[in-house]
Every structure is written in structure tokens, then in C-alpha cells.
């Protein structure tokens, strides 16, 4: 899909560059060439030549061609019915400023990362929990807005396994810039394993007193499978396996979770997560270490 658009782009770009150069050159030539006197009949011929030929025929032919070649290119992103096996469905919900990703067929929930099988079409249903966001993975294709109350659909296909970057494209408030989605396309078997690892997991809570602290303080907004059910903030069940924290703010290497827990308001000003300054450092460390371990 993205490749088709790229081809369209290069054709249009070449053609436009040609038109621009020719028109500018004609214009400058017309200004510089020695003046000639024209009889009214000659002048009339020139009028016709420029206005009908240049002004009407040229642009009309161009846009007709463009429409004929351009419209079919968009058909692939339509969610048309397909024969045989139905495409994988994924539901993505935009939040200020993070992505909620659900796989309804398997019940897997994650956040700020989108994993999908390569080489087959995937149907995404997108919506928003607050303001309008826009789902966009430049390498995979066009964008689609996430509008509260609406459920827009788009069909994407990653041809090869690989990692991509997605970013919210519709201005959505203070941290619009920090709403990045990590996208990874897997070979179908790897994808099946990825899903399987997240299904039916038993997660042990962190040791007390951090355990109850987590449920009381974090669990109100965050959910972790079997431990807490918060809905306002990203699901943390596989946090340790995610490549970034805070929707692309911080690389999730060793110690990053603790840093996020301590400094998130400085790293991502305006984020909805309240300050943790009143939590004892030891408890924070315990929680951070536990979260790092949530990596199926």
C-alpha cells in the first residue's frame, strides 16, 4: 500500500516539476524576449492558443489522468469482504496520550505497541476515549482518525516482518508530540507465539507491602491481568517486554521503569499520572523491578 502511494508520489512529483519548470520558463521567456507587434488576428490566435491550450486543455487532461490512476490505489484500504479466512481484527483506542491495543479474537490487551502478522491483511478498528487522535504508521499506509463515538476501519498489510514507528497525526493536546506507537510485524508463526505468551497468564503480585500499594495507588488506573482492573491508563501486563515507556518517551532498558515512576512529570509534562514523590523509594524500586519482570 505505502509502496503504491510512493509510486504515485514520484510520478506526480516528476510531472509537477516539469509543469513548474515549463510554466516558469515560459513566463520568464515572455518577459525577456524582444517585443513584437501583432496584428489583431495574430493576437487572437495567441489568445486562443494560450488560454484554451494552456489554461483549459492541459490542466483538464492532467486531472483526468490523475483521477483515473489515483482512485484505484485507495481501494486496497477499503474493508471489503474477503473470500476464505477472515483478516485478523485489532481494536485500537486513542487516549491522551497513549494507545490501547486489543486483540478481540484472543482477548490479549496491550498498550503503546502493535504487533501484527506480516504478509496478510489486518483489519483495524479505531476509536478514541477522549479527544480526536489519528492512527498512522507511515511505512504501512495512510492514516485514519480516531474519533470518539465513531469506529473507523482500515485494512493494513505489512509485507515483510519488521519494526515500524507510528505516531498520532491529529493534534490532541499538550503531549501530542509524545504519542508514539511501536509497531512490529512478525512472521505468522512468531505472531501466534507472541499472542499465545500473553494468553491465560498467571501473574504473581509484587511482595508486600508494595503489592497492596500497587493495587491501591496504581491499580485504580492501570490494569494488570488478575491483579488490578483500572481502565484510565495503559494495561501493564506485559510492560517489561515493551520497547519504550510513556508512549515513546523513554527506551525501556534496565532501570528505565524506575526512572519513569520517579520523573514522569518531568519526562512528559502534562501526563495524567500523578506524582509519586510521597511513595517510599524502596517500594517504588520493588514495584519497578516487578514491572520489569512482566515480560512474557
Amino acid at each position: 500500500m505505502a509502496r503504491e502511494v510512493a509510486i504515485i508520489w514520484w510520478v506526480m512529483c516528476g510531472f509537477s516539476a516539469l509543469v513548474l519548470v515549463v510554466i516558469s520558463a515560459l513566463w520568464i521567456h515572455a518577459m525577456r524576449r524582444p517585443h513584437r507587434t501583432y496584428s489583431p488576428a495574430q493576437a487572437k490566435r495567441w489568445h486562443g492558443f494560450w488560454i484554451i491550450g494552456g489554461g483549459i486543455v492541459l490542466p483538464t487532461a492532467s486531472v483526468v489522468l490523475l483521477l483515473i490512476f489515483g482512485i484505484p490505489a485507495g481501494q486496497h484500504m477499503l474493508v471489503l469482504p474477503v473470500e476464505g479466512q477472515q483478516p485478523l481484527r485489532i481494536e485500537i483506542t486513542g487516549h491522551q496520550w497513549w494507545w490501547e491495543v486489543r486483540y478481540p479474537d484472543s482477548g490479549v490487551v496491550t498498550a503503546n505497541q502493535l504487533h501484527l502478522p506480516a504478509g496478510q491483511p489486518v483489519d483495524l478498528t479505531v476509536t478514541s476515549a477522549d479527544v480526536i487522535h489519528s492512527f498512522w504508521v507511515p511505512r504501512l499506509g495512510g492514516k485514519i482518525d480516531m474519533v470518539p463515538g465513531h469506529h473507523n476501519q482500515i485494512r493494513l498489510q505489512a509485507d515483510e516482518p519488521g519494526k515500524h514507528r507510528g505516531q498520532c497525526a491529529e493534534f490532541c493536546g499538550t503531549q501530542h508530540s509524545r504519542m508514539v506507537l511501536y509497531v512490529e510485524a512478525h512472521a505468522p508463526n512468531d505472531f501466534a507465539r507472541w499472542i499465545e505468551a500473553r494468553q491465560e497468564r498467571q501473574i504473581a503480585p509484587p511482595p508486600e507491602p508494595a503489592g497492596s500499594l500497587f493495587v491501591e495507588r496504581c491499580g485504580i488506573c492501570h490494569s494488570v491481568a488478575g491483579i488490578s482492573q483500572g481502565q484510565r491508563a495503559p494495561d501493564l501486563s506485559d510492560l517489561g517486554s515493551r520497547p519504550t515507556l510513556g508512549s515513546g518517551v523513554l527506551v525501556n532498558d534496565s532501570g528505565a521503569i524506575l526512572r519513569w515512576l520517579q520523573e514522569h512529570q518531568r519526562l512528559k509534562p502534562g501526563t495524567g499520572m500523578p506524582s509519586t514523590d510521597d511513595v517510599a523509594p524502596a517500594e517504588l524500586e520493588t514495584i519497578a523491578r516487578w514491572l520489569e519482570g512482566l515480560a512474557p
Binding site: 504515485i8 508520489w9 490523475l66 484500504m77 489519528s134 507511515p138 499506509g141 497525526a169
Partner: peptide, 12 residues
Amino acid sequence: ALVPFDWQVHDT
């Protein structure tokens, strides 16, 4: 004005 191209570059 071309829809598929616009999907790509819209809001960029």
C-alpha cells in the same frame, strides 16, 4: 486532492 496520497501526508 488525491485521496490515497492525502491519507499518507495529511497532517504532516
